[in-house]
């Protein structure tokens, strides 16, 4: 299905760590990009914290392991990896990730691993030029 003519728009609302929706959304985005499907993401409300670059990995004091021993990525690393994967090369789809600017400002999360700043107008434009839409709202 690597036709590069298909585009999915996915709207997400959740911050990381609180719900599984973030994980599933990122898995869906990756699967689509690997199939050559272009993906538009509209990160709304808490979802703008997914790519916030000041995230830091931590040690695990319960297990007594260090940051290095833990070796777990933070969500910004996954978002950055999707940004790299979604460069449109090698038959992969293109990723266009828009962070809601008002949501970014009220959370102080201007520094982002990937994507661009936008607003409802960008979501509207996505909706005009997309094959399908999936809204993954918070609950």
């Amino acid at each position: 299905m690597a036709d590069n003519a298909t585009t999915l728009t996915i709207a997400i609302m959740d911050p990381p760590y609180e719900t599984a929706r973030v994980t599933t959304a990122l898995r869906l985005i990756e699967a689509a990009l690997r199939k050559g499907i272009n993906v538009n993401v509209f990160a709304y409300e808490g979802a703008v914290s997914l790519g916030f670059t000041e995230q830091q990995p931590h040690a695990n004091p319960v297990k007594g392991t260090s940051v290095e021993e833990e070796g777990h990525p933070t969500p910004k690393d996954w978002v950055a990896a999707l940004g790299e994967l979604g460069n449109g090369r090698d038959g992969k789809g293109k990723l266009d990730w828009v962070n809601c600017g008002l949501c970014v400002d009220e959370r102080g999360m201007q520094n982002q691993a990937t994507g661009r700043r936008g607003g409802p107008q960008h979501l509207y434009e996505f909706l005009q030029n997309t094959t399908n839409v999936l809204v993954i709202a918070t609950r």
Binding site: T24, L28, E30, L134, V135
Partner: peptide
Amino acid sequence: GGVDDMVDLLASPDTKAIW
């Protein structure tokens, strides 16, 4: 199934997707 199957369904403009 998996996310690949979901994406295949979403790739059709005739699919009405509800999460």
